[in-house]
Simulated scan of single mutants.
Amino acid sequence: MFVVVLTYKKSLDVIDALLAEHIRFLEANYAGGVFLASGRREPRTGGVILAQAKSRQVLETILADDPFCREGAAEYEVIEFIPGKVAPQLAGLLE
């Protein structure tokens, strides 16, 4: 499992111009079962994605398709972790 921390590198005007395409990117990866949760950081300096992928390399290939990445609008920190305990409603993450 991975936590992806995005940090905006360009102005919010650039981010907002890419937002509709970024949302389509997110939706496609939710549909593909890769993304589990996502949202903006507060204050609005970037975002966070909780993801599950076969490997870090697979996830990094997916993230390269994000318009924020393609346009150099954000940088990504990918943190891999192995969940050992979750809330009952998230038990499927341990499988």
Rank of each mutant, 00 (worst) to 15 (best):
5 V>D: 05
46 G>R: 01
31 A>M: 03
16 D>W: 14
10 K>P: 00
44 R>D: 08
46 G>K: 01
93 L>D: 09
25 F>A: 14
75 E>W: 01
31 A>H: 04
77 E>S: 13
58 V>S: 13
55 S>F: 12
82 I>F: 08
88 P>Y: 10
88 P>M: 02
43 P>F: 07
25 F>D: 06
40 R>K: 11
35 F>G: 00
94 L>M: 14
91 A>I: 13
94 L>I: 03
21 E>I: 08
92 G>W: 02
88 P>K: 05
24 R>M: 02
25 F>R: 08
74 A>T: 12
43 P>K: 00
61 T>Y: 10
92 G>V: 05
88 P>V: 09
62 I>W: 06
66 D>K: 13
42 E>M: 04
69 C>G: 05
1 M>D: 11
37 A>Q: 09
70 R>M: 15
46 G>A: 08
56 R>M: 06
27 E>W: 04
31 A>K: 13
74 A>G: 07
10 K>I: 14
57 Q>M: 07
67 P>V: 10
4 V>F: 02
90 L>T: 07
4 V>C: 02
20 A>H: 04
30 Y>M: 04
20 A>E: 07
86 V>N: 09
25 F>L: 13
13 D>A: 12
30 Y>A: 05
6 L>K: 00
39 G>E: 07
87 A>E: 11
95 E>V: 05
69 C>L: 04
83 P>C: 08
16 D>R: 15
20 A>R: 14
4 V>L: 04
36 L>P: 01
14 V>I: 15
40 R>L: 07
93 L>Y: 10
27 E>P: 03
65 D>A: 14
39 G>P: 04
51 A>F: 06
1 M>A: 10
65 D>W: 02
8 Y>R: 03
48 V>N: 03
58 V>H: 14
11 S>N: 06
84 G>M: 07
39 G>S: 03
94 L>G: 06
15 I>Q: 01
56 R>Y: 04
18 L>Y: 04
69 C>S: 14
31 A>I: 09
77 E>F: 05
29 N>T: 12
75 E>N: 03
54 K>N: 08
46 G>N: 03
73 A>P: 00
73 A>I: 12
24 R>L: 09
79 I>T: 09
90 L>F: 13
84 G>K: 10
94 L>H: 10
